[in-house]
């Protein structure tokens, strides 16, 4: 299916991607062409089989819901990579 520029802008917003005008134009063209190809799927007859299940022979695995403490080394690596940090917490911009 063809997709227009407004739709591309809307998808980019949903995906939290800032795109420039050249990118918007390029993706409009490329996504339309890719979706045109993907439309082949409409030819396939499919039944309403249970499609979102576990692999046969496998079962749901669970574990106790408990807090596991990670090592100081791991903690340090993680905290050192936060872009802005204050009192051991990530600092972000205004939400509202």
């Amino acid at each position: 299916m063809a997709i227009n520029k407004e739709e591309i802008k809307k998808i980019a917003q949903l995906a939290r991607l800032e795109l420039n005008d050249i990118e918007i134009e390029k993706y409009q063209e490329q996504l339309s062409s890719i979706l045109g190809y993907i439309d082949k799927l409409k030819e396939v007859k499919t039944s309403n089989l249970a499609i979102l299940g576990l692999e046969s022979g496998e079962y749901n695995k669970t574990r106790i819901d408990e807090v596991l403490i990670c090592s100081e080394k791991e903690q340090k690596i993680v905290l050192d990579q936060i872009s802005e940090i204050e009192n051991g917490q990530a600092k972000v911009g205004r939400v509202i």
């Binding site: 917003q13 995906a15 939290r16 800032e18 911009g93 939400v95």
Partner: peptide, 14 residues
């Protein structure tokens, strides 16, 4: 950068 959403857009766009 005005707000959190804008940070997301820019970080991911770049």
């Amino acid at each position: 950068v005005e707000n959190l959403n804008e940070i997301y857009l820019k970080n991911r766009g770049e």
